[in-house]
Design a binder for these strands. Structure first.
Lengths: 207, 207
DNA sequence: GCCGTGCTACCTCATACGAGGTATTGCGAT
DNA sequence: ATCGCAATACCTCGTATGAGGTAGCACGGC
């Protein structure tokens, strides 16, 4: 029994760390390293690894999209997310996309290799902390695509009137969207809605 | 010539990666690993390393405070920041605190070990990307402590009136602070001010 | 067929917000 | 001693914001 692992992470230092951890284990080996999502999808086709360790925020193609692409091509591939982001939205989206595990980068090396074994064995890997984060926000209330769009513009400082103009709707409609957003997120105003959305991984700052 | 290095980072995986990189070099060695700022300060006293590699966001004591503490105790200690945060405010604060280098975690392993050599040699290590980020925001306009406090409350969704109450000032004063904040950050409203402050590392979400 | 939901749009109304201004105090630097 | 600036506070004014409500339309699931 020899577990093959593909690492997908844009940080060379992290890749080196994972490689070092896995090389110490007799029952597993790193068969490839990808530095972005697109390369991860390509290398997974080439190496057909037992387990893919996947970061989330990466250039070219983010981890969620890469997970979806890999699962579409190989529905049985085991993918474990290994990232610094602990927002419930990130976790939900990763698991929905087909990840079978979700680890944070403050996980101990021993637990990472154990997670790889667990995943290779076909079981899910959700540490208590991650599971607790999911439980914090039940029932799950996702923002709709339109609401996400409106919130992103609000984060950029656009007024309701300007948001209405750029999405081609009336200001009244924008106000309704924002009311729903604040209600779903439990925010008192648009500013707190943005803060909460960023904390929970619903919105990202890079755009 | 043998350069001793202390690693301070809360991610075991990152520590393993740095350790692996440095172990490959004949002229340097890792003498210790700290998993938070407080431990970094303590271990630096014990090992007196030539170079300290320091993360910024950590439990117990953040990297900036740790840099200040180490430089206060040992003004000649060379400290190189190695972090994922690329906001100009983070970079400025680290260099002000006494860091002699600032690397991002997407730096190649080869460049990390070269940076360690450069730092041990007494020279500064500021890659072009990091320097460019600093140049983007010249002249430098720091928020005052009061402005930071007001902005943090605004991010939490407090109204001007409520902010005034919690800081024991009038609402008019809060409005003036917010005007200055928006002016300094180039924001059109409080929401964009929060977004910009988070992007630039002026404000953090964890509080 | 029916129901839920996303999206749209309108209404009213009170208040919060931000732009513009002036001005005083106190502190640290030159 | 003087200058600059942070911090405080007041003023006016127009507009933006958010709470509350109602309602139509389209689409997909059951």
């Amino acid at each position: 029994m020899n577990i093959s692992v593909l690492i997908t992470d844009d940080h060379p230092i992290v890749r080196a760390g994972i490689r070092a951890l896995i090389s110490n284990e007799p029952d597993m080996q790193v068969v490839g390293e990808a530095c972005d999502g697109a390369e991860g999808v390509a290398l997974h086709e080439e190496y057909e690894p037992d387990v893919v360790l996947m970061d989330l925020r990466m250039p070219n193609m983010d981890g969620i999209a890469a997970i979806r692409a890999i699962r579409a091509a190989s529905p049985n591939r085991r993918i474990v997310v290994l990232t610094t982001y602990d927002g419930d939205a990130d976790i939900h989206r990763a698991l929905d996309a087909g990840a079978c595990g979700y680890l944070l980068k403050d996980t101990l090396g021993r637990e990472v290799v154990n997670a790889v074994r667990t995943a290779a064995d076909g079981r899910k890997v959700i540490p208590p902390g991650v599971a607790g984060r999911l439980a914090e926000f039940t029932p799950r209330l996702d923002l709709t695509p339109r609401e996400l769009e409106v919130l992103a513009y609000a984060a950029k400082g656009l007024r309701n009137k300007d948001i209405a103009r750029v999405i081609g709707r009336t200001e009244e409609t924008v106000k309704v969207h924002l009311k729903h957003i604040m209600s779903k997120l439990g925010a008192t105003d648009r500013t707190e809605a943005v803060t909460i959305a960023l904390q929970r991984g619903i919105l990202h700052m890079d755009s």
